[in-house]
Design a protein around this nucleic acid. Structure first.
Length: 422
RNA sequence: GUGCCUGUAGCUCAACGGCAGAGCGCUUCACUGUGGAUGAAGAGGUUGAGGGUUCGAAACCGUCCAGGCACCCCA
């Protein structure tokens, strides 16, 4: 074999069996999106780097974007996330849109990172956003969309869980502990890393930030308080709504959920595998003003993004994926020999005209091989048209699944096959 | 960007520094108008690449390439 050019690092080849999975996932996303009344949209895959400079944060732009100059010298980037494009699209039509808008999208994104479990450089994301609403009810709706999706694909609350928190609640907690406002982001980071460090390391990190021993002890107590959410009116209402929707078992309060993106101002949430394997399956939250930085007027909203890589990982782990056929064909028409090829061609045409997906054998092979081929690619019905059949105006129809074989008159062929496929 | 692990037949993997193997798959036959079962035979390899150490390297050493995992950050 001559040398194969290696694929770009962090990309994936979608063989037909992978494409079947991707399309199945896409179908479930569409189904759930539409069930809640959301409409599909998409932005460009290429954007100016400036779009992301505004809000996405230094790291994402400098370290993680695929950037290249176009022929005019402008810096173009493969989109690393959808939200800034969404914000621009909304801002451009803000005056003519009726709010709230419920939008969803599924498409490719790129981030220049080292690939690992649940993370590639090229990935797909399901984005769902409600724009122009500022209520806990709308936050609850987005979380309900996530939970409904899990339910639809067969993931149970034993397997995946949505963890929610509120940045407002955490703000008030920090205030009560008299932690200086300029330490806020650093403390959020500290909270985020609690599980990644040993207790010793975590404590040292905390004190090195400038927290007093008292503040540190107070933080510890708060993070262990499973009922802290009751102090937040919004979280309490969201939990109540999800209970009423019979989705409450998918949702748990977790004071350690903070989320990295700066534009979240209210409720934040993410979903994880219950074994804590891999990364978050989805992440989202409430933003106080999405479009301000791209020139629009104040517009709050709530949304989330789900990556296809972790999702596929958990779907495979918990056996949620159905079996997919290796072929789209339902019938294979054999060719007895070269002289009978025109007759087989006629049969194949009749079937295709009747909307039955049909493969006509294109190689000059023994019947045995043709049957074996049909079996290997998973075609359920095989037709044989030999000299005997031709003389009697019949076709031999063999069902490989039931192993039954029968002779069918020409004129009954389509209905007979449709019966078998039903 | 930092660290760790891996690379052997189409696939999954064995082989103490001493003849490169197994299972599955593939091809052919038993079965010349019928797949999936069974039996028999067969094909398939520059051990990721190119160097070094050694009487001798798939194995040991360093370089490169590719992949995986963790950190960072995030879906």
């Amino acid at each position: 074999m001559t040398q194969i050019i290696s694929p770009v690092k962090g990309t994936r080849d979608f063989y037909p069996e992978d494409m079947a999975i991707r399309n199945w996932i896409y179908g479930k996303m569409r189904e759930v999106s539409q069930l809640f009344g959301y409409v599909e949209f998409d932005g460009p895959f290429l954007e100016r780097i400036d779009l992301y400079a505004a809000k996405s944060g230094e790291e994402l732009v400098k370290e993680q974007a695929f950037v290249f100059p176009d022929r005019g010298g402008d810096l173009i980037t493969l989109r690393p996330e959808l939200t800034p494009s969404l914000a621009r699209m909304i801002a451009e039509k803000q005056k003519q849109l009726v709010f709230p808008q419920r939008w969803w999208s599924f498409g490719p994104f790129w981030r220049y990172e080292r690939p690992q479990k649940g993370r590639t450089r090229e990935f797909f994301q399901w984005n769902v956003d409600m724009l122009g609403s500022d209520t806990p009810e709308s936050d609850a709706e987005l979380i309900a969309v996530c939970a409904t999706f899990f339910k639809k694909v067969g993931l149970s609350p034993d397997q995946v869980m949505i963890f929610i928190n509120s940045r407002e609640l955490m703000d008030s907690v920090l205030k009560k502990l008299e932690i200086q406002p300029d330490l806020k982001m650093a403390v959020f980071r500290l909270i985020d890393r609690k599980d990644k460090l040993s207790f010793q390391q975590w404590q040292e990190f905390a004190l090195s930030l400038g927290l007093t021993q008292n503040q540190f002890e107070g933080l510890k107590v708060v993070l262990n308080d499973k009922n802290l959410w009751m102090e937040s009116k919004d979280l309490a209402l969201i939990m109540e709504i999800l209970e009423r929707m019979d989705l409450g078992n998918y949702v748990t309060f977790d004071p350690q959920i903070i989320r990295g993106l700066d534009y979240y101002t209210g409720v934040v949430f993410e979903a994880r595998d219950m074994d804590r394997e891999g990364r978050a399956i989805l992440g989202g939250g409430h933003y106080g003003n999405l479009v301000g930085d791209v020139g629009g007027e104040l517009l709050p909203g709530v949304g989330f993004a789900m990556g296809d890589v972790m999702l596929r990982f958990v779907l495979e782990k918990y056996n949620c994926l159905p079996e997919f056929d290796n072929t789209s064909a339902k019938v294979l028409v054999t060719v007895f020999d070269a002289t009978l090829y025109p007759d087989s061609l006629v049969i194949a045409n009749i079937l295709r005209n009747a909307e039955i997906p049909t493969i006509l054998v294109s190689e000059n092979q023994k019947l045995q091989k043709q049957f074996k081929y049909a079996d290997r690619i998973g075609v359920p019905i095989v037709l044989v048209l030999g000299p005997e059949e031709k003389n009697n105006n019949i076709v031999t129809v063999k069902n490989l699944k039931t192993r039954q074989q029968e002779n069918v008159l020409f004129e009954n062929l389509v209905t007979s096959i449709k019966d078998q496929l039903a």
